[in-house]
Amino acid sequence: MIATFRTSHDALRAERSLRSRGIEVELIPVPREIAGDCGFCLLFPTGEIRVEEAGLGAEGVWLVEERGSGEGLRKERRYERIA
């Protein structure tokens, strides 16, 4: 799952907060399918995401569906907004 934020600052702050609580999360550039201008968002490797968790301040939540083709690094992905 992906959590998007209003600003990259918010994304950075949320990452620090989650990491300090031992929650595994990756700060990555926002996928093109979600937004055209540059920005960073949080990628949660598991499906668990509780955006209401104190101070996370996410603006949107997206499901990521991966269809790995096996060749190379690039995977086909589908993004659907769920919040």
Binding site: R32, E33, I34, A35, G36, D37, W62, Y79, E80, R81, I82
Partner: peptide, 11 residues
């Protein structure tokens, strides 16, 4: 329908 908006810049 919660669909992703098309991106504003094409690769």
């Amino acid at each position: 329908g919660p669909l992703a908006a098309p991106s504003t810049t094409a690769p």
